[in-house]
Design a protein around this nucleic acid. Sequence first.
DNA 1: TTGTAAGCGTTATCAC
DNA 2: GTGATAACGCTTACAA
Lengths: 329, 329
Amino acid sequence: MATIRDVAKHAGVSVATVSRVINETGYVHEDTRKKVETAIKELHYTPNEVARSLYKRKSRLIGLLLPDIANPFFPELARGVEDEMQENDFRIIFGNSDEKSSKEQEYIQTFVQNNVVGMIASTNDPDTHAYRKLNIPVVFLDRTMDNRPSVYSDGYEGGRLAAQEIAARGSRNIAVIQGPERVRPAMDRFRGAAETLKDLDIAFQVIQSSSFGIAEAGVWAKEVFRKVPDTDGVIASNDIVAAAVLHEALRLGKKVPEDVQIIGFDDIPLSSLLTPPLTTIRQPAYEMGRAAARLLIQLIEKEALDNHTIQMPVTFTERDTTRKAEKND
Amino acid sequence: MATIRDVAKHAGVSVATVSRVINETGYVHEDTRKKVETAIKELHYTPNEVARSLYKRKSRLIGLLLPDIANPFFPELARGVEDEMQENDFRIIFGNSDEKSSKEQEYIQTFVQNNVVGMIASTNDPDTHAYRKLNIPVVFLDRTMDNRPSVYSDGYEGGRLAAQEIAARGSRNIAVIQGPERVRPAMDRFRGAAETLKDLDIAFQVIQSSSFGIAEAGVWAKEVFRKVPDTDGVIASNDIVAAAVLHEALRLGKKVPEDVQIIGFDDIPLSSLLTPPLTTIRQPAYEMGRAAARLLIQLIEKEALDNHTIQMPVTFTERDTTRKAEKND
DNA sequence: TTGTAAGCGTTATCAC
DNA sequence: GTGATAACGCTTACAA
């Protein structure tokens, strides 16, 4: 690899001059600039980012910490983050936390060891010391805490919508699957749904689920029909679980949506490919990722405040696991 | 952030000594080691990886380049890579190429600028100059080239299996969806299926598809039933497309698998949640990711040869979009 | 407008 | 056993 010295020698100037043309900083004569530029071309020189990072104490790297990229909601988020970062010449160091604080700490540590300029995290404990003591900006994505920069969608409203719409479509004995307790958006959704159902005076039962994983989804689905065999509507904690519920309902010979209506959360890409296509509360995951990246960049460039939060809209996405609404216009 | 100098001062020794205890290199008296270790603890010192990387001209970072993390096959791969790397204290800089050579080049460049010690890539052109000139090991994953370190599964055999099994289950007018032409595994699958069908003397028609994306899958699915309305078996280019085909078949009122059998490729996590669950040719994506990471680590540590290739088995995963096999034992 | 040299935080060589 | 110190490749005062 050619270094800045090689370029300087080749162009017959000093390294300082080369640095000046690379960074477009300070004066440099047009002729010398040309010389330097051809030298750079000829030697295929590209600056060593590590040396830069060492001197400036900041890199063009950001850390992205997600619970589990294999969970279909997160790739969309990640893709949004990556696209926005890529367009702004930032690169991403990526890690999965599995919701484990130990892995999280480990990644946070290596992020700072690598001089990342910022971090995007989807964590259950945004308030821990580990984040507070960081002197780089952190944007919390999806999982979020008040008063910290974050991008999320309104889980409570999502839950409310789900309850309202499934009720409006005639379900009267509803099973609500409650997501993992320590996952804030899951709890928000649950609260939104439960409170709305209560207000509407509609009977519902709660099924606990302790994870969002594909592996366990089938278990929660079976649990639903074991605990509430005659349910005519289920509000699932996310689309994976909803898909599993749909699958189980069909397997039991129930008609969807005639016998049971099902509403999911997230609108992962495959939801529309299910049969029947899944009605769900959509979160704009890709856009959330992009928004988080944009916010982080603003924070890095000090163009945004430290408590900026962005709430994205959730939308009722009507497909065919719910019946047509009863007249309500 | 505390530096090695701070630690040295705090412990009343030289930086050299601190370095020795950190890296467990050279002699250091038990007592001084203790002193240094407590100093490290008290100051919460962690070595600056950037400085290390600069001096040693190698980091603990590896580059991972995938076509599109939002395509459900790749998160599994990525997760496998990440888990293995994480366990070996390597971190990942991640990028999506969108199969675009320009993005690919850009990432390769920034990977080397950041001193990555190795790279894992899923690319259509593993043979380009961009890779050949690299002086770090590269493992090609899924998309692969002979004579270069790679991990992939046997697409040809997969195609053969799909054809054989769908034929054994009675399909006689088969639609084979051919994946993108420049994607090698897709072509291998197609060849495997087409040649097998030819050998078996079974009629089939080919539907071209130019991408693996979720967005377009529905288009190819419609195409299938437009071009081959009376087909009784479709071999899809991957599970996404298979899911779309299943969806479309059901929408058209066809019975699956009675009227049409469907076989996919990959076995993405959601395939088993479809109704009916999708029969598919499974690739062990997660294990492939892990294997690629392991191989790369061996290459980095010079424990493996430069042309080491690992072929993973594909397996016929029988679920309910195919009929029970006709007696063939 | 350009060059010299210090410094970023490490590791490794060489004396002691 | 331990400590100075050069070096990794860059940026940026400061001088010229």
